[in-house]
Amino acid sequence: MVGQTVKIPVSKLITSFLFCALVLLAGCGPLISFGDDGPADDVYNLSYEGGYSANVDSENIIYLEEPLMNQGLSGVDIAVALPDDQRSTLKGVRWAGNSADLVRDYLVRSLSEKSGVKLLGDGGLDVRAGCRMTVKVWSFEFAPGERSRDDTVDVAIEFSLVRYRDGHLVGQRAFNVSTAIDTNQGNSVVAGFRAGMHALSGDAANWLGPLGSNCAL
């Protein structure tokens, strides 16, 4: 019959839609995870214990670029360096954010306060700076020893200071700090990272301070 209209009941239409949705949801099972029932991870931040650089030289400004993390160091997991170059992550512990962001924020504050040179981080993209400093993180990992008192936290960072005006490499230096911790004595691995970063940023600030005059606007 030509021109006859077929009417489908609304209840059947809704039922069919729900059925299709269930089929799609079941098909995407491998792609969707709702987590497990295990204990929650301990989340840590890497905050600089010092103050904020209020009275720094505003003539010499350096833009600190996002650190380039070595293989296996990027992400929120705490990297573990095992013998024979085996890599792993620490179970039940993770950083509050990407390790590159944590390192960058720590260096911006610590170097600005200790070196007297104004450093700009993520929020200083539109501020005119005289130099930019690239950061290569070679080591940022927990290295367990044979015994707990042999455990160390290794931090190795290489800085390259480049002048914007002419692309001149003002300076380049790598710093390496290995901090011993004893996890059985209650020393936190994260505390080892914090101590390592504190010592390394102090050395880096002593190197960066005299070079700041090369970054005058």
Binding site: L90, K91, G92, V93, F142, S148
Partner: peptide
């Protein structure tokens, strides 16, 4: 790529990987 690579995490208590 979506769920991460399978790796054995290091257990600090047992001082071994899983």
């Amino acid at each position: 790529a979506l769920f991460g690579a399978k790796e054995a995490p290091y257990n600090l208590k047992t001082r071994k990987t899983e």
